[in-house]
């Protein structure tokens, strides 16, 4: 008998016990995942970069599992958001609690750079709000190249543009080229927030009002290393292959006005 077959024999002895049945719990958890639309997904070629782009995952938490399971209308509403390429929607487990806000104030947005430096590495033309009152951004950041160029612009608080406790700044504009490969942008909405589909200059978007949780994931579902953070009112939309996201304390109509002016 060879050593290899003795090792095989040892494996069969040591591993004779059946593994625990994971199916019920996994089935329960994936039932809380986004509704996938076969028609849309079937048409998409997931090998194309724009399809594998940043995804925004909205997780809607209902009051209880029973409510969520029975709430077909809530699921259908969020399924509508799937019309945005690269954005997927999921439900958070009922009763889940938001992650504690990491200490240290401002979220990590990447390396502070000049706009020219950001433009040099960004594979798209950096868009900025052109609304009167919004001049040059007060801060420009680029996330590490490992996960692609995510450019963030910050605008300091001022009258009419209050600071948000989540970002410590008045307005945060983040943009990502859809060639950022297979990254996942996950938003978890607790009952402190609500989400609805909106239009921005004819492009489909999502408005999330109220504090919610923001995490980034890589292709295999692991965190890319930034802690989950609480986010303020956010408007996310896709325009010409770029995902744009603005975050502020402003109500919808003002946020939409800024979003419409971003170019």
């Amino acid at each position: 008998m060879t050593l290899e077959s003795e090792l095989n024999d040892l494996g069969r002895v040591l591993l004779a016990e059946p593994a625990p049945d994971l199916v019920p719990e996994v089935a329960h958890r994936i039932a809380l995942e986004p509704a996938r639309r076969p028609g849309l997904l079937g048409r998409l070629d997931w090998r194309r970069p724009w399809v594998r782009t940043l995804s925004v995952v909205l997780a809607l938490s209902a009051g209880s599992t029973g409510v969520l399971a029975g709430s077909a209308s809530a699921r259908e509403r969020v399924a509508d958001f799937l019309n945005i390429p690269g954005i997927s929607i999921t439900h958070a487990p009922a009763g889940a609690k938001p992650a504690p806000q990491p200490s240290g104030g401002a979220p990590f947005l990447g390396q502070p750079v000049s706009l020219a430096e950001a433009q040099a590495v960004a594979p798209f033309t950096i868009a900025q709000p052109t609304l009167p009152g919004f001049g040059a951004a007060d801060g420009v950041y680029v996330l590490p190249a490992r996960i692609g160029s995510v450019v963030s612009l910050t605008y300091a608080p001022r009258p009419g543009l209050p600071a948000t406790p989540e970002t410590g700044t008045g307005l945060l504009v983040s943009q990502f080229k859809d060639s950022i490969d297979a990254m996942l942008f996950k938003k978890i909405i607790y009952n402190t927030a609500a989400a609805r589909p909106v239009q921005v200059n004819g492009h489909q978007g999502v408005w999330i009002e109220g504090p919610h949780e923001l995490t980034m994931f890589s292709a295999d579902g692991n965190s890319v290393g930034f802690p989950a953070r609480s986010a303020a009112n956010s408007l996310v939309w896709q325009s010409d292959g770029v995902i744009l996201r603005i975050e502020s304390a402003l109500p919808f109509d003002q946020a939409l006005a800024i979003a419409k002016s971003v170019r």
Binding site: E33, L41, W46, A182, L184, D220
Partner: peptide, 9 residues
């Protein structure tokens, strides 16, 4: 669960 989420890719 993570594999399920990543399945489209």
């Amino acid at each position: 669960v993570k594999a399920y989420r990543a399945l489209p890719r």
